[in-house]
Design a protein around this nucleic acid. Structure first.
Lengths: 343, 343
DNA sequence: CTGTTAGCGCATTCAC
DNA sequence: GTGAATGCGCTAACAG
């Protein structure tokens, strides 16, 4: 056990513990000579300061908490990687939390602020209300939101409305007019607001093109490949099936591909499929999608948090990252054959 | 700020701080009445004990460190999920660390033991030497290794040798004899020993079948889809190309599929491909593979660690988890056409 | 049962 | 420059 304390070092170096503390913290006011003696004693005793004691004395915990809906979606993993990368050399511990339900989230945030008291709080992809942010602010712990749609808070985000718009616009540009949209369930308490925005962007793009979104062309269900497959089947079984489908995530786009395979529909000739996120699977499967800077969002968020810890009273940082359209093999110009196809 | 301390509570409840501490820790010896008064004071002041002070006093940090080669491989993510799940309700903080190089690993472990001093150490998929384990033992911090090939340490693992054997056996059973193996580079300092074991299992399976492994049929390169694609091209360009390929990971198997597509080889008719890990992509792409309980390994490892923290002097726990063969669409019986194919 | 005291290990005043 | 003393907030051992 490393039961060796600062006192042992002081005794061995024949100095006071104050002096040891000073060399530990690189205080200038200490003689070269005594500093040397202390350093030797530290070396000989293989001493390392106890971080807990240090934290208590300093009033800092030296930790940063990261809360996310754990690793249920691949996109969260990428964001977490970015965070880890930014924090690696900062000297801060990364404490990981996962919340799955709205109630769990509230309980967790309360615990975080009152009990854990990290130096900084990072929240990834968890829907919050203004009230949460207010309470966070009250506590005075620097907080950064990543991929959370709350204004007037330090955050790093992408414009999901624009993303949905971009995706739909791409399909419109290809000549499609019968465009369906598959999304998560939009009204859950812990629903990802981002999905809703993507859907709204989809609607807006259609309207800007003079097309009224058809209710039958929008289906929502729990997030998942299998669910998306079922949704695709439903929408493709309509009297007038869509010629293009915008899935609000790549995972769901994969489900659409499943359904297309079930029906023997050739992609993209008979059906164009658009995803969102640009997760690795999308690249593997050559799916057209919207790329959002996942790793970077985590990285930037963590960096922002670190700077806030250093300068707590900075103005609100509202960092928007760019989205880009990535056209791959699942989207193509509308063909007459597809347009006339009914089931 | 939650500057309210135990002293404030004591004052308000008109008791000593000792009493407050007692109700905080559910000590039996305290009058119902005074306990009530204290609880009220706590409520009114919205008091929460400072965990740092508590830790310093108790000598415990209430944290568990988890070290892994971050989220470079999908399999690590699954393991981490298992860990998180097991730790969620344990009251321990999960501190996340990532190491990429051997030197980094050594530095990290040293820091972990001397400075961070978590209550327990969990190491996932990072190759260690006996020396590391010895030092870990010296420090007396309970440690559990997951997916690390070190005997005489608490660990949760799968038998990668057997896995490689199983995979190869499957191909042999299908009638293949010209079976290639693509692996990571086996001699890096931080190479994943597990890969080497898979390769050795491959060799053994061949030999048990009276087949001498051909050097040309084993290629190694850095882990990755693109690298695997190139390796596959190399091996498929041999005068006598293999009719089946065992890729030591699903990611690499995907690269093999890429190469097959490049060459217009139909899978599995003209080439059987076997993966390893059963990551989600393998399911998406319908790849035959070896399933190892990833989530479970993390879960079991964390549980073991928690029990070790409670009972530090337990005998060595050496938990082996089962591997299973999952046959999907990329492996099929050898056909004459494939066997005669040369390039 | 309960109030008081003495640490936990370190940083940070103070005097010297 | 340096040593001794005080406090960070809490637990535990000690007397009442």
């Amino acid at each position: 056990m490393s039961a060796v304390t600062i006192r042992d070092v002081a005794k061995r170096a024949k100095v006071g513990i104050g002096t040891v503390s000073r060399v530990l913290n690189n205080h200038p006011s200490v003689h070269m000579e005594t500093r040397q003696r202390v350093l030797e004693a530290i070396e000989e005793l293989d001493y390392a300061p106890n971080p807990i004691a240090r934290q208590l004395s300093l009033g800092r915990t030296n930790t940063i908490s990261v809360t996310l809906p754990f690793l249920t979606f691949p996109s969260f993993v990428e964001r977490l990687r970015g965070v880890q990368s930014a924090l690696a050399e900062s000297g801060h511990q990364l404490i990981l939390y996962s919340v799955q339900t709205a109630e769990h989230r509230d309980r967790h945030l309360e615990q975080l602020m009152r009990q854990v008291r990290p130096d900084g709080i990072l929240i990834l992809s968890i829907p919050l209300f203004d009230d949460h942010v207010h309470r966070l602010k009250e506590r005075g712990i620097p907080t950064v939101l990543v991929d959370v749609d709350i204004p007037h808070a330090h955050r790093v985000y992408t414009d999901d409305f624009q993303g949905g718009y971009l995706a739909t616009q791409h399909l419109l540009d290809l000549g499609h007019t019968r465009i369906a949209c598959l999304s998560d369930i939009l009204d859950t308490e812990l629903s990802f607001v981002t999905t809703r925005l993507r859907y709204q962007g989809y609607c807006q793009a259609l309207e800007d093109c003079g097309i009224t979104p058809r209710p039958a062309y929008h289906i929502e269900d729990h997030h998942g490949r299998a669910e998306a497959r079922a949704m695709a089947h439903t929408v493709l079984a309509l009297d007038e099936p869509p010629t293009a489908i915008f899935a609000c995530s790549d995972t769901q786009a994969i489900g659409v591909l499943d359904a297309a395979a079930d029906l023997g529909l050739s992609i993209p000739d008979e059906l164009s499929v658009m995803g969102y996120d640009n997760i690795r699977d999308a690249e593997y499967l050559n799916i057209s999608t919207i790329n959002q800077p996942l790793f970077e969002s985590g990285f930037e968020g963590a960096q922002l948090l670190l700077s806030l810890i250093a300068h707590p009273d900075d103005d609100i940082h509202d960092i928007a990252l760019d989205l880009t359209l990535i056209q791959r093999g699942t989207t193509a110009p509308l063909r007459a054959s597809a347009n006339n196809r009914t089931i």
